[in-house]
Amino acid sequence: MGKYILKRAVLAVMIIFAISLLTFIVLNVIPGDVVAAMLGEFASKDAIETARHQLGLDVPLPLQYLRWLQGLVTGNLGTSYFQRKAVLTLILQAFKYTFVMAIAAYIIAIVIGLLFGVLAAVYHNRMIDRILMSLSIFGISAPSFWIAIILQIFVGLKLGWFPVSGVKSSVWWVLPSFSLGIRSAASIARVTRTSMLEVMKQDYIRTAFAKGISYPRIIFFHAFRNALIPIMTILGNDFGLLLTGSMITENVFNIPGIGKLLIDAINRRDIPLVQGGVIYVAAICVLVYFVVDILYAVVNPNIRLTKEVN
Rank of each mutant, 00 (worst) to 15 (best):
V118H: 03
Q93G: 09
I110G: 01
I128R: 11
L92H: 09
I110M: 12
N125T: 11
Y123R: 09
H124W: 10
R126T: 14
F116W: 09
Y97R: 06
H124P: 04
G117F: 01
R130E: 07
Q93P: 05
A121Y: 07
L119M: 13
A120S: 15
M101A: 14
A121V: 08
Y97M: 04
A109Q: 00
T98G: 05
R130L: 10
I112W: 06
I128W: 13
A120P: 08
V111H: 12
A94I: 06
F95A: 04
Y123K: 10
H124E: 14
F95S: 03
Y97S: 05
V122M: 13
A120Y: 09
A104V: 12
L114Q: 10
A104G: 02
I112P: 06
R126H: 13
V118D: 05
L114I: 11
A109R: 00
L119R: 08
V122G: 10
M101R: 09
F116A: 12
K96N: 14
L114V: 11
N125F: 10
A109G: 05
F95D: 01
Y123F: 15
A121Q: 10
I108Y: 11
F99E: 08
N125L: 13
L92N: 13
A120E: 07
Y123Q: 03
T98H: 05
I112S: 02
I110C: 07
D129W: 02
